[in-house]
Design a protein around this nucleic acid. Structure first.
Length: 281
DNA sequence: CGCCAGGTGTGGT
DNA sequence: ACCACACATGGC
């Protein structure tokens, strides 16, 4: 077993996993189980540190997954130096968020499910898909299920997906797996430039600008990217006094303002806006 | 009951 | 190019 330690000021596990970028984790009494593909890590706080506990063979994987090479203080500081009050506040509140470097296929699959849906329900559907179709695994006394392999998912019917509660999105998932069977390699798209990558993804059924941007950001770690959903649209109008209405234009505007830090700022703002809303009820 | 949720496809002007 | 509406499903 390997223990990776990191100062908790810029690595808050609860904020990192619950900010909406990922759906595969389980809260325990003390800490979280964090899942990616077929791997699992136990992440918890001890003193002033956050500790990742995982198999030795997965240590490098999770160091990369949690983006530990990045100095997030630089990003938080540049956010607070800009003259946008809400960005400042959200970066202060969310400075413990780390953008995960997730598997591109897993992100694409999960964010297809996310459209016109809410986070608790997205999580439930994905959990069910893993429970039924993913390999049973054990880590440190905990039982969990891997994300199903692409090979396994390719054998499923639209009805199989629908039975997991994904609704009309079942058709999109099935279509994705058919394309992959035909030779589409999601991982290999990493060679493309951001704009070409986005174009390739939006060519898929059920993948529009928003889902593509989330995949580009969370799955391919392109930071010059700013997904715009209902919450970000609200932030734009209420906190940035924005006048644009087209989501694509709003996204481009934010990227122009925030450049190579856009991805991180988007997550600060998204999480902050959602927290405020949930506190008010 | 209606409205909303990390939107997108489709078919109308 | 823009617009309205449908699309499953559960929580409130």
């Amino acid at each position: 077993m390997e223990k990776i330690k990191y100062d908790k000021e810029y690595f808050n596990v609860a904020d990192t996993l619950e900010c909406g970028q990922v759906f595969r984790f389980e809260k325990l009494e003390k800490g979280y189980l964090s899942f990616s593909l077929d791997k699992c890590a136990l992440v918890f706080e001890e003193g002033d540190q956050t500790i990742i506990e995982c198999l030795e063979e997965d240590a490098e994987y999770f160091k990369n997954y949690f983006d530990l090479k990045r100095d997030c203080s630089l990003i938080v500081n540049s956010a607070t130096s800009l003259n946008y009050d809400t960005l400042k506040k959200s970066a202060e509140v969310g400075k413990g968020i780390r953008l995960l470097k997730q598997d591109a296929f897993e992100v694409l699959f999960c964010f297809i499910i996310s459209q016109n849906n809410n986070i608790p329900k997205i999580k439930k559907s994905i959990d069910k898909i893993c429970q039924i179709f993913g390999e049973e695994k054990f880590f440190n006394g905990h039982r969990y299920h891997a994300f199903p392999t692409q090979k396994k998912l390719a054998t499923l019917s639209e009805e199989d997906f629908r039975s997991c509660g994904v609704g009309f999105r079942a058709r999109y998932l099935k279509n994705l797996m058919v394309e992959i069977e035909r030779g589409l390699d999601i991982g290999a798209l990493n060679g493309l430039e951001t704009e070409d990558l986005r174009k390739k993804l939006t060519g898929l059924l059920g993948v529009g600008r928003k889902v593509a941007d989330c995949t580009v950001l969370f799955g391919y770690s392109r930071m010059d990217c700013f997904p715009v959903d209902t919450w970000i649209e609200k932030v734009y109008k209420e906190d940035f006094n924005g006048k644009l209405t087209d989501r694509e234009e709003i996204s481009k505007w934010f990227v122009r303002q925030f450049k190579e830090n856009a991805g991180y700022y988007q997550q600060y703002l998204f999480d902050y806006k959602r927290r405020i809303q949930n506190k008010n009820k």
